[in-house]
Design a protein around this nucleic acid. Sequence first.
DNA 1: CCTTGACCCTGTAGCGCCTACAGACCTTAT
DNA 2: ATAAGGTCTGTAGGCGCTACAGGGTCAAGG
Lengths: 140, 140
Amino acid sequence: MTVNFTVSRHLIRRGELARRSGCNIETIRYYEKIALLPPPARNEGGHRLYSKEDQARLRFVMRCRELGFSIDELRSLLSLVDSGAYSCGEIHGMTMNHLKDIRQKIADLRRLERTLKTIAADCADGSKPDCPIIDALQSD
Amino acid sequence: MTVNFTVSRHLIRRGELARRSGCNIETIRYYEKIALLPPPARNEGGHRLYSKEDQARLRFVMRCRELGFSIDELRSLLSLVDSGAYSCGEIHGMTMNHLKDIRQKIADLRRLERTLKTIAADCADGSKPDCPIIDALQSD
DNA sequence: CCTTGACCCTGTAGCGCCTACAGACCTTAT
DNA sequence: ATAAGGTCTGTAGGCGCTACAGGGTCAAGG
């Protein structure tokens, strides 16, 4: 009786990983290429086999991306985690830094919102001869 | 006595346009290529010559980009303006649409901000054994 | 055993929105 | 006349993926 280790050790292939994670199948290969994911095991035929840890790693990567971390920020986070000797403070610092960026983006968008609202309001009241939006956009 | 029409009619070259507008010189050529800007006049030697209208057009394009309009949205705005027969209502509608997108983005970023704040707060109080950010990022 | 169909492999090209380069030509000042 | 700087063109690179093409592998059915 032979035992299928690939099954008994819960190794899955790329398509299955894509399905389970919701990550595009090509993106998984891309993340491996840019070294966000380690090269996984392979079977005899050269097919990638992903372990539970690989799956957790991909989840981590995807989560960080969803949270708006750039690839570079993510790389830093990962290198801290991979070093094993990360301190909670370092991680916290990076997170707070990222939070600062996000708050900046929110502030920028709100300024934008106000500007658009203002020029649109001019337009809506219909009192102007030419379209005030066009005029507003022409001036610097 | 000869009159230099290129000077008397205020035509400027690409470098000067870049300097005055703050737009990258290569970007100006790119905008022409994707037809956001019309092909400008040329002098004998083939150098581009930009008129006052060209300068206003670039200002319009840059302003829209700053305000977060996508190239496609901008193209629609421009085709309305170029048709000559744009109605203020159409422009207003597109602006309001864009405003909606921006508000959506703001909402998304705020959710993100809350999430990050929450997982960072766990970390800051130092009461946890492992880094809670890492843990939080691992779980889906 | 062989075939079929689904999966996976690799390399490469495309997207949007620029930005930067190389190698040639033009313009302007000295 | 020459040098320095601006401009011309086409093309390639960057990000973060995504999507092919042309092949090899795997699992199930006949």
